[in-house]
Design a protein around this nucleic acid. Structure first.
Lengths: 151, 151
DNA sequence: GCGGTTGCGTTAGTGAGACTAACGATGTAA
DNA sequence: TTACATCGTTAGTCTCACTAACGCAACCGC
C-alpha cells in the first residue's frame, strides 16, 4: 500500500504499476482463499487435476509452475484436508499418483466461485469490453515473454 | 517460468496473468539494475530526491512505499556508493536529512535510461497505442485499489 | 514546568514465495 | 552393466512485504 505521493515519473512506470497491482491482486486472492483454508497453489493443483485427471507430483508441478520441491507441501496440505489422495504408482515406483477426491471436487467448485469473484473485484473499475482488452493485452505480453515463445 | 501447459481456466485468470507478468517485469528490472550495482528501491529513492529535494528517511519511505524499517538499508547502500549523504537534521534531531550527491545525480540519469529500456522490453509486443492503453488501464485499476481512492 | 502522545531511525524477526542443491530410489538406454 | 535421467523429498538461500519494539526527540494540553 502507501505510495500516495509517488513522484510522477515513478508512478507512471508500467513495470511499477504492474508490481503494485499484482501485489494487490495476490493479497486479494490469498486472503480470500484463507477464509476457506486454502492457498492459491491448492487451487492451481486442483484445477490441473480436474482438467487432466490423476497425475504424478512432477507433472502437477510442471502444469502449475510450482517447483516440485514446493509441490510436496501443497500435496501434503491437500491430502490433510482430504481433497486429494496420494498413492504410489504401481507402473512406476518413483511416482506418486495424485487423485482428486469427491470432497476435493466440491471444494474446488467453491473455490471457483470465490476466485471468479476476486476477478470481478480486481477489474471492478473497468467496463466489460475494457476487461476483455486488459486480459487480452496481458495474455499477449505473457505469451511474448514466456519461455515457450521467447526461445 | 514454466506454466507451459497451464490448464486454460487457470491461464486466463487476470489475477494469475498479472502475477506472472509482474514477476517477469520485476526480474527484468532487478537483473538489469544489478548490472549497475543498483536495486529498484535505490531508483525509487533517488527519483523522490530529485523530484522533491532533500528529505528525511521517513518522508522518503512515505513517498516510495518502502517501509521505513527497510529504508534504513536502502539509504545505507546509497550512502556506501556515494549517491546520497545522510546528516542529522539540526532543526529536528530525530530526523536524518538525506541529500543526493552529484555522483548520485549522474547515477540516476544512467538508471533512467536503463529503466526506460526495460519498459520497452516489457511492452515490446504491443503497438504504441496499445502501450498507452495498457498503461491507462493499469493506472485506473491502481487508482481504484489504492488506499487514497478506496477510502 | 510536566505527562502523554506521536514521529523518528534502527534492529530484529515473521511468513511467503521463488529458486537451487543434493539425496536415495527407481526407471531407461547405450 | 554402466551411465544417465526422473521422481519425491529435505534442506537451505534470498528477497519482499510487513510487524513489533526500542530509545530518543518533539509536540500538545495543561
Amino acid at each position: 500500500m502507501t505510495y500516495e505521493d509517488a513522484p510522477e515519473p515513478l508512478r507512471a512506470l508500467p513495470s511499477r504499476m504492474l508490481s503494485l497491482l499484482a501485489m494487490y491482486a495476490d493479497r486479494l486472492v490469498s486472503e480470500g482463499l484463507a477464509a476457506e483454508d486454502a492457498r492459491k497453489w491448492h487451487y492451481a493443483a486442483l484445477v490441473a487435476l480436474r482438467e487432466h485427471g490423476p497425475m504424478s507430483q512432477a507433472e502437477l508441478s510442471r502444469r502449475t509452475g510450482v517447483y516440485r520441491s514446493d509441490m510436496v507441501a501443497v500435496v501434503n496440505e491437500l491430502e490433510e484436508r482430504g481433497h486429494v489422495e496420494r498413492a504410489p504408482d504401481p507402473a512406476d515406483r518413483r511416482r506418486n499418483v495424485i487423485t482428486m477426491t469427491t470432497t476435493g471436487r466440491r471444494h474446488l467448485e467453491r473455490l471457483d466461485e470465490l476466485i471468479s469473484g476476486f476477478q470481478d473485484d480486481l477489474l471492478a473499475p473497468l467496463t466489460g469490453p475494457e476487461r476483455e482488452q486488459f486480459s487480452a493485452l496481458l495474455a499477449r505480453l505473457l505469451a511474448h515473454h514466456s519461455p515457450r515463445n521467447t526461445a
